[in-house]
Design a protein around this nucleic acid. Structure first.
Length: 121
DNA sequence: AACGTGACGGCTT
DNA sequence: AAAGCCGCCACGT
Protein backbone atom coordinates (compact mmCIF):
# COMPACT_ATOMS: atom_id res chain seq x y z
CA UNK A 1 0.00 0.00 0.00
CA UNK A 2 1.21 3.40 -0.80
CA UNK A 3 -1.63 5.58 0.25
CA UNK A 4 -0.29 7.23 3.27
CA UNK A 5 -1.91 10.46 2.48
CA UNK A 6 -2.24 10.76 -1.23
CA UNK A 7 -3.82 14.05 -2.13
CA UNK A 8 -7.07 12.93 -3.70
CA UNK A 9 -8.40 14.44 -6.84
CA UNK A 10 -11.78 13.92 -8.34
CA UNK A 11 -12.31 11.55 -11.23
CA UNK A 12 -11.68 12.76 -14.74
CA UNK A 13 -14.85 14.14 -16.23
CA UNK A 14 -13.71 14.91 -19.69
CA UNK A 15 -13.03 12.09 -22.07
CA UNK A 16 -11.25 14.28 -24.55
CA UNK A 17 -7.69 15.31 -24.21
CA UNK A 18 -6.87 17.07 -20.96
CA UNK A 19 -5.17 14.66 -18.57
CA UNK A 20 -6.95 14.17 -15.30
CA UNK A 21 -5.56 16.25 -12.47
CA UNK A 22 -2.94 14.16 -10.80
CA UNK A 23 -2.32 12.17 -13.92
CA UNK A 24 0.97 10.40 -13.46
CA UNK A 25 0.93 11.06 -9.76
CA UNK A 26 -0.02 7.53 -8.82
CA UNK A 27 2.72 6.01 -10.96
CA UNK A 28 5.25 8.40 -9.47
CA UNK A 29 4.27 7.68 -5.89
CA UNK A 30 4.32 3.95 -6.59
CA UNK A 31 7.88 4.22 -7.85
CA UNK A 32 9.02 6.26 -4.87
CA UNK A 33 7.40 3.83 -2.48
CA UNK A 34 9.60 1.09 -3.94
CA UNK A 35 12.91 2.83 -3.26
CA UNK A 36 14.52 0.57 -0.67
CA UNK A 37 15.88 1.74 2.63
CA UNK A 38 19.43 2.94 2.31
CA UNK A 39 19.11 3.89 -1.36
CA UNK A 40 18.10 7.01 -3.24
CA UNK A 41 16.74 7.90 -6.66
CA UNK A 42 16.86 11.18 -8.56
CA UNK A 43 13.75 13.10 -9.58
CA UNK A 44 14.43 12.36 -13.21
CA UNK A 45 15.01 8.70 -12.48
CA UNK A 46 11.71 8.45 -10.66
CA UNK A 47 9.90 10.14 -13.53
CA UNK A 48 11.47 7.82 -16.08
CA UNK A 49 10.67 4.71 -14.03
CA UNK A 50 7.10 5.96 -13.77
CA UNK A 51 6.91 6.09 -17.54
CA UNK A 52 7.13 9.88 -17.63
CA UNK A 53 10.58 10.65 -19.01
CA UNK A 54 11.48 14.32 -18.92
CA UNK A 55 9.11 15.18 -16.11
CA UNK A 56 11.53 15.46 -13.23
CA UNK A 57 9.92 18.71 -12.20
CA UNK A 58 6.58 17.01 -11.96
CA UNK A 59 8.06 14.65 -9.39
CA UNK A 60 9.31 17.59 -7.34
CA UNK A 61 5.99 19.33 -7.60
CA UNK A 62 4.08 16.29 -6.40
CA UNK A 63 6.42 15.77 -3.47
CA UNK A 64 6.10 19.42 -2.52
CA UNK A 65 2.38 18.86 -2.10
CA UNK A 66 2.72 15.63 -0.18
CA UNK A 67 0.87 15.94 3.13
CA UNK A 68 3.07 15.96 6.20
CA UNK A 69 3.05 12.56 7.85
CA UNK A 70 2.76 10.70 4.58
CA UNK A 71 4.38 7.29 4.58
CA UNK A 72 5.87 7.94 1.16
CA UNK A 73 9.68 7.96 1.53
CA UNK A 74 10.02 11.41 -0.08
CA UNK A 75 13.44 11.87 1.51
CA UNK A 76 14.94 9.16 -0.72
CA UNK A 77 14.52 11.39 -3.74
CA UNK A 78 17.46 13.69 -4.44
CA UNK A 79 18.62 15.67 -7.44
CA UNK A 80 20.72 14.33 -10.28
CA UNK A 81 23.90 15.51 -8.61
CA UNK A 82 23.22 13.69 -5.38
CA UNK A 83 22.29 16.85 -3.53
CA UNK A 84 19.18 17.70 -1.56
CA UNK A 85 16.93 20.15 -3.36
CA UNK A 86 16.38 22.45 -0.41
CA UNK A 87 18.25 25.52 0.71
CA UNK A 88 21.34 24.26 2.48
CA UNK A 89 20.79 24.08 6.22
CA UNK A 90 17.13 25.02 5.99
CA UNK A 91 15.01 22.97 8.38
CA UNK A 92 13.70 20.97 5.44
CA UNK A 93 17.25 20.28 4.31
CA UNK A 94 18.18 19.04 7.75
CA UNK A 95 15.09 16.86 8.01
CA UNK A 96 15.97 15.08 4.81
CA UNK A 97 19.63 14.87 5.71
CA UNK A 98 18.89 13.27 9.06
CA UNK A 99 16.41 10.83 7.55
CA UNK A 100 19.03 9.66 5.07
CA UNK A 101 21.81 9.46 7.65
CA UNK A 102 19.39 7.39 9.66
CA UNK A 103 19.56 4.77 6.92
CA UNK A 104 23.35 4.78 6.79
CA UNK A 105 23.57 6.90 3.69
CA UNK A 106 26.88 8.74 3.75
CA UNK A 107 27.41 12.31 2.60
CA UNK A 108 30.59 13.59 1.10
CA UNK A 109 30.24 17.21 2.04
CA UNK A 110 26.77 18.15 0.90
CA UNK A 111 26.27 15.35 -1.55
CA UNK A 112 25.68 11.67 -1.83
CA UNK A 113 27.75 9.45 -4.09
CA UNK A 114 25.07 8.26 -6.49
CA UNK A 115 27.35 5.64 -7.98
CA UNK A 116 27.16 4.04 -4.56
CA UNK A 117 23.66 4.75 -3.31
CA UNK A 118 21.47 5.07 -6.37
CA UNK A 119 18.64 2.59 -6.43
CA UNK A 120 18.94 0.28 -9.42
CA UNK A 121 15.71 -1.67 -9.85
C1' DA B 1 -2.03 35.06 -23.72
C1' DA B 2 2.09 36.47 -21.28
C1' DC B 3 4.93 36.00 -17.62
C1' DG B 4 6.88 34.37 -13.35
C1' DT B 5 8.02 30.43 -10.37
C1' DG B 6 9.77 25.90 -8.88
C1' DA B 7 11.61 19.55 -4.03
C1' DC B 8 14.80 19.47 -12.16
C1' DG B 9 18.64 18.43 -15.61
C1' DG B 10 22.36 18.75 -18.95
C1' DC B 11 26.09 21.63 -20.67
C1' DT B 12 29.24 25.29 -20.47
C1' DT B 13 32.15 28.47 -17.81
C1' DA C 1 33.93 21.69 -8.11
C1' DA C 2 30.62 25.23 -8.30
C1' DA C 3 27.83 28.46 -10.55
C1' DG C 4 25.53 30.04 -14.70
C1' DC C 5 22.57 29.39 -18.50
C1' DC C 6 18.98 27.59 -20.73
C1' DG C 7 15.51 24.10 -21.84
C1' DC C 8 11.70 21.84 -19.77
C1' DC C 9 6.97 21.08 -17.58
C1' DA C 10 2.95 22.23 -14.78
C1' DC C 11 0.63 26.11 -12.43
C1' DG C 12 -0.80 30.64 -10.69
C1' DT C 13 -1.63 35.49 -11.68
Amino acid sequence: MIDGGLPHYGPMKSTTETPAPGDGQLAILLVISRIPRGRVASYGQVAALAGLPGRARLVGRILSRLPAGSNIPWFRVVNARGQLSFATDSSAWRRQYEALREEQIEFRGRQINLALYRWQP
